[in-house]
Every structure is written in C-alpha cells, then in structure tokens.
Design a protein around this nucleic acid. Structure first.
Length: 111
DNA sequence: AAAATGACCAGGA
DNA sequence: GTCCTGGCCATTT
C-alpha cells in the first residue's frame, strides 16, 4: 500500500466510519461527498483495505441497496447478519426500506 | 510502461 | 421499459 494514495482512501474510511449505527450508505454517496461523483468504483475498491481499519463496510452498499460486497466478507451471510443485527431488514442480500435506512454523508455536516 | 480489473453510477440507445 | 457504453481513480498483472 502506498501511503500517498491513502489520501483518497483515508477520506472513504473516515466517512464510512462516521456512518451512524443502524444506517447504510452507498458508494456513490461517499464518492459524491468526496467530490468524485464517478469515482464510486474507487470507493468500493478502497473498502478492500477497510477490513484492516475500523470501517464498517457492511454498512456500505451499492445504490440499489444490494450487498454487492458481501462476497468480500468472511462468510457468505456475515454482512447480512451484521445489518440485521443493526435493525436493518435484509432479504436476499438486498436491504429493505433502503431509503429509510439510507444515510447521506452530507448529514454529517448537519449534525 | 501499458493494459486490465474492480464491493459503482449515470446517461444514452 | 430494458440493455449497453462511458467514466472515474487507484491497484494489480
């Protein structure tokens, strides 16, 4: 890992870490908050190293609320279990009431 | 050094 | 309405 690039990753980790308990957000939302609307891919990629951090990657899903990255977790249903543990309804790797549980990084400023 | 890949998103056909 | 293409930025081969 090149520390210089952590500049971008660091932002992702920082934002992801600020995700409130029982809330979820999308890669695009984080990317947008960072200023890279189309850089969402990098956000997901950044999560690759998230497991080395205290970043709750299980609270980060794609725009559709689908647990696309659950494959990268320990088990198969671990990510889903964690989300359900937070009070989020997850069915078939898809978050229910996504808009209800959705959390926008911009709210971080409002808080 | 160049090309391909990736936990994505938005717009165009 | 669904399907496909482009772009984004860093990592990996």
């Amino acid at each position: 890992m090149k520390p210089e690039t952590l500049n971008f990753f660091e932002r992702v980790y920082e934002v992801a870490r600020q995700i409130p308990h029982g809330r979820v957000t999308s890669y695009g939302a984080i990317a947008n908050y960072l200023g890279a609307n189309r850089g969402a891919r990098m956000v997901g990629y950044a999560m690759n190293g998230s497991h080395s951090k205290d970043v709750p990657a299980h609270r980060v899903v794609n725009r559709k609320g689908l647990l696309t990255g659950k494959h990268h977790f320990d088990g198969t249903n671990l990510m889903q279990q964690l989300l359900e543990s937070e009070g989020i309804e997850v069915i078939d790797n898809q978050i229910q009431n996504l808009e209800t549980h959705f959390w926008n990084p911009s709210e971080l400023l409002s808080e």
